[in-house]
Design a protein around this nucleic acid. Structure first.
Lengths: 380, 380
DNA sequence: CTTGGAAGTGGTAGCGCTAACACAAAACGA
DNA sequence: TCGTTTTGTGTTAGCGCTACCACTTCCAAG
């Protein structure tokens, strides 16, 4: 894997006409020497603290303080430094800072097999915050085999030299894994955790409330017969979402028709099957709310197969706002989780020595209205 | 954004019973002192080079060499060091190494609006290689507005202090952007670039060949009337893919029926429309090959809507292997690009001072056989 | 006036590692 | 035998930054 380049399929030059230009352009834009150039490129003539200090006529320490704790430096000094910083286009060297301060963390992101949409948002959010907080992100794929043996997993993580760990779902829902991992002596944040009882920090959303909100939205539009496609039996999140759904129905004094509740497995296909069963009911619904987007998309497919137009004849709502939701036609009205922000929080939490190891945060969700939901057809 | 934590929705403790356990567990697993613990956590009693050197009875330098250039150290010495390393569970401090060697790069990943599947694979590949090469990844979202003004974009990147830049599609297909960016004086790698002529390194796949392979696969299965759903007019990749498709047809002495070639816009909906037009042809095809997965999925939807079973009555093939391909039912047979490896290569390329600034690599693709393709129905 | 203590600033000593050279010991040809 | 290389290892000097303590003012309290 790391020797990838050497075992490469023959690299083929597509254009030859750039040969000269390339050499001429050089890399640092200056000094045309040292074709071997092992070093030039990294020395991008970055201004250092020292230079800024000299230009501003103060000591390095003062500059450092002006940057890290501005309130400790008198205003005129601070402004002088500020000007020097701008003039030299100074940017602190994060590595040196980390090294000297000894305050930067290596944070692992343990993931298993999340949707790629989830993962990319997660990484983006974490990466951004790591950068600004001076931490470093280490991705750590934890395959099924590792999950099967929590002991080994903990051992592996223990000597990976990490200072903190973020566990993404579905890993974070696994109580065994959570327990094993929280025993390694480094702070752990569980994202969208299951109901486990490990001593780890938790960041998630209020699934019940999110489902309640979406169902209310549907009811507000005029729907009275609403079906729900649940996730697998025993799944914590699915149960929460279902609870929210039922509570909204109760609130509106609508009956809960068991024929309109079907179980799925979070997959597209299971959504199709569940929708098939629901749509075959004696009194079919005008809206279907699925516990995730994949099943919602499956429900749309099944509706189409039966010649039902979405959303004119049937509304379909999803949950998660995966890329699928905005890809298909009609695009799905769904519940969006602030994944990037959750990741960002997780990083901050790990970096904050003061955080309680049993803290739990719930972030707000957002209902994304797209094309798959509309008022029910007029029965008149 | 960075003050996220302070403006958080009220954190709610979910369990109180861990209060004690949390305190007791501590963070470093040892020394129960300093509850204020501002520092403890980062000083994970990591062994240093010095300690290893002492234990092994050699100088720090020798240990450093044993780690970075083993062939320079005599075998017995090396083994002694190796043992010390293991005993102390020593792991080099990457930050110190980077700082001292001055060899580590800050590499930016410029992206615009790629599919999240693409992005997450990209980030994963890049992150991994960055870690092992000691580089640092900086994600840089470049919104439409920035792309509209390549000058400003170049300026922004110029003083972002990056040492290298990786541009993901669709950004890398934009000739203006590529040109502007390659003028900033840092090495740039374009992923799946368009046909632009900027002096940047390029990593991609051979789109024509990939399409050729997939079409051959279809022909090999017995299909004789194969339709193609192209991307937008003028799109470089789409044109390449179409060329590959047509070449495979030629090879097999099959006619190219213009009624079986439709243009799309890379969207699900456009795939449905294109499929509708294709399936309405006087002599409909037994297989449809779409230039991307979204359109292929749209084609499947349209087929279903018309009551055609996939793949029994109609085969559908995609391109890109996005998450959509494995989500929908039936899952799509498609062309997989080694995105993580492309990213990994890109990082390596940027880190290798010897690489030509006009190098171009083409990686091999893989045909992923799933459920949407089968031999054509028997006409007997 | 002292004295004490902020508030603002500077000096020094590293953080953990590697580049560059210095040097000793072994290996070589003449 | 004596250079002369080669090979393996040690020494020194930082990389760019911050912790920590020392110092200078300046002002209020005694």
């Amino acid at each position: 894997m790391s020797e990838a380049l050497s075992s490469a399929p023959t690299p083929r030059k597509r254009n030859d006409r750039y040969e000269e230009a390339a050499v001429q352009a050089g890399r640092t834009g200056g000094k045309a020497l040292a074709a071997k150039g092992s070093k030039l490129r990294t020395k991008r003539a970055q201004a250092t603290l020292k230079e800024v200090a000299e230009l501003a006529g103060v000591s390095q320490m003062t500059v450092s303080r002006a940057l890290n704790a501005p309130e400790m430096v008198r205003k005129p000094t601070r402004e002088r430094i500020q000007r020097a910083v701008e003039e030299l286009n100074y940017r602190p060297n994060l590595m040196a800072r980390s090294l000297a301060a000894g305050r930067s963390l290596f944070i692992g992101v343990g993931y298993n097999n999340p949707s790629s949409a989830y993962l990319s948002e997660l990484l983006l959010g974490a990466l951004r915050t790591c950068r600004s907080a001076g931490h470093h992100l280490v991705v750590e794929e934890l395959p099924e085999s590792a999950v099967g043996d929590p002991e080994a997993l903990a051992g592996k993580l223990r000597d990976s030299g990490l200072d903190g760990l973020i566990l993404a779902p579905p890993l974070s829902e696994n109580a065994e894994v959570a327990a094993a991992v929280s025993g390694i002596g480094i702070p752990v944040v569980l994202l969208s955790p299951g109901e486990g009882t490990s001593t780890a920090m938790r960041i998630g959303i209020d699934d019940e409330r999110a489902a309640l909100l979406m169902t209310r939205h549907l009811i507000g539009l005029g729907h009275r017969r609403i079906a729900f496609i649940a996730g697998p039996e025993g799944d914590f999140q699915s149960a929460e979402r279902r609870r929210g759904f039922e509570r909204a129905l109760d609130e509106a004094n609508l009956p809960t028709d068991q024929a309109l509740i079907a179980g799925g497995a979070y997959t597209y296909r299971s959504g199709m099957d569940a929708a098939a069963s629901i749509l075959s009911a004696a009194a079919p619904p005008t809206a279907i709310f699925a516990a995730n987007d994949d099943m919602a998309a499956g429900a749309v497919a099944e509706a189409h197969r039966r010649g039902l137009r979405v959303p004119e004849q049937l509304s379909v709502a999803g949950f998660d706002d995966t890329s699928l939701a905005s890809t298909i036609w009609p695009s799905l009205t769904t519940v969006h989780q602030p994944i990037a922000e959750m990741a960002s929080r997780a990083v901050l939490l790990l970096g904050d020595a003061g955080s309680q190891s049993d803290a739990a945060y719930q972030l707000d969700v957002e209902i994304i209205e797209r094309e798959s939901v509309a008022p029910p057809p007029q029965e008149v």
